[in-house]
Amino acid sequence: MSVINKMLQDLEQRGAATEQPARLATHMPVSQQYWLRRVPWRLLVMLLVAAVLLLSWQLLLKKTVQPELVALQDEPVQQTELSIVQSEPQPLHHPAEITQENESLVQPEQVVAVLALQQASVPPVATVPATEPEQATSPKDVAPRSANPGQLSIARHTESAAAQQQRLLAEARQAQQNGQSAEAIRLLQQLQQQQPSVLSAYLQLARIYSQQQQWQTARQWLLQALNLGLEQPEVYFMLATIAAEQQDWLQALAHLPARFELTSHPDYYGLKAAVLQQLGRPADAYFWYRQLHLLQPTQARWSLGAAVVLEQQQQQRAARYYFQQALAQRQNLSVASVDYIQQRLAATDP
C-alpha cells in the first residue's frame, strides 16, 4: 500500500507540475494576453517601415551625389579640349606607328586628334573655350545676309580673277620691255586660258607677234577674239593694220566697218581714210579726213591728209588751205612732213 501511495503521490506531483503553466496563463489578465497575441504583427510592421525609410534615404543620397560625380568626370574632358586648342601643333602620327619606344612620349591629345582627323572629312573647327564669356553682337556688327547664298563666293572669285588679270598683264608688259618676248607670250597665253574673255591678252599677243613680223599668228589671235564675241574697234584696227603692213588694202578696208563712233575712235577712221586713199578713192578718203579735221583741228595729220587727197582731185585751192592748216600745227608733224608741206605751198604759190 505504501508503494502504491508513493506512486500516486508522484503522479499527482507530475500533474501539478504540468498544470502550473496553464494555471498561470489562465490566471493572467486579458490585456496581457491580447498584447502577446499582437507582438509578431507589430514587429513585422516596424521592420517594413524601417526598410522603406532605408530605401528612401539611399535614393536621396544617390540624387545628391550623382551630379557631383558627373561634374568631376567632365573636368578632365574640358581640360583636354583646352589643351588641344591652346597647345602648339605637334606632328601627328598614325596609331599603328606608335611603338613601345615612343609610346611614353605620345600624348593623349595627339591620339585623339589623329582619330578625329581619320574619321572627319573636313578640318576640325576650333571651339571657343568655355571659360571665356560670349560677347553680344549688335545688329550693326552682323553682316547682312545675301538673298543668294553663292553671291559672296562669286564676288570673291571675281575680285581674285581681276587681281590675277592685272598681275599677269603687268608681268607680261615688263617682260616685253626687258626683251623677254617668250616669257611675255607665256604669261599672256596663261591669262587667255584661265580667262578667255580678257581682250587685252589677245591684243598684246597680236602686238608681240606683229613686232616679230609673224603676221599670220597675230591675225589668228585677233580672229579668235572675234569668234568669242569680243568685237571691239581695237581688234578691227589691229587686223586692218596687219593687212596694211602686207599692203593688202582690200583686206584692210574689210576690217574697218563704219560701225563705231567717230568721236571715240578717231585713229580708227584715220586709218580707214588712209586705206581709201591707197585704193584710189580720194573722195571717200577726203570725207573722213574732213570729219576728223573738224573733230580735232589741232591735229596736223588730218589737215595734211585732206590736202593730199584734194591735190589728187586737182583741187589746188582747197588743198593749199589744208596745207596751211597743217603747217600751223607743225609741232605735231615730222621734219619730212613739214618739208613736204613747204614744197607744196611753194609750188602752188599764185
Rank of each mutant, 00 (worst) to 15 (best):
L55D: 10
L304A: 12
A243Y: 10
L48P: 02
A126Q: 13
Q33R: 15
M46K: 02
L205T: 04
V70P: 00
Q246D: 03
Y340V: 04
R290G: 01
S200I: 00
P95K: 12
I341Y: 04
Y269L: 01
A244H: 06
A136L: 11
Q277E: 08
N102K: 06
Q79W: 14
A184D: 03
S334L: 11
Q66S: 06
A243H: 08
D248P: 01
Q176N: 02
Q224A: 06
L262R: 00
A273S: 07
L36Y: 13
N5F: 13
Q278I: 07
Q314G: 07
S200V: 03
V125Q: 13
E183H: 05
Q66G: 12
D267R: 00
L24H: 11
S337P: 00
Q66W: 10
A307L: 07
Q314V: 09
Q58Y: 11
H293V: 15
H27V: 14
E132M: 14
Q342N: 11
P257E: 09
K63Q: 08
V235K: 02
A274R: 10
A51E: 04
A147W: 12
E245R: 09
S200M: 07
L271M: 13
F260I: 06
P257H: 10
S104Q: 12
E12I: 15
R156C: 07
I84S: 12
R344A: 15
E234Q: 13
T348Y: 15
D284R: 02
I4Y: 04
R259A: 08
H255Q: 14
Q118S: 08
N5T: 12
V3S: 02
Q329Y: 08
G270C: 04
G15C: 14
A283H: 07
M7Y: 03
V235Y: 05
Q314E: 15
K6N: 07
Q246R: 13
S160P: 09
A326N: 11
P95H: 08
S160A: 10
T263H: 10
A170G: 04
T18Q: 13
L228I: 00
L226D: 03
E109I: 12
I98A: 05
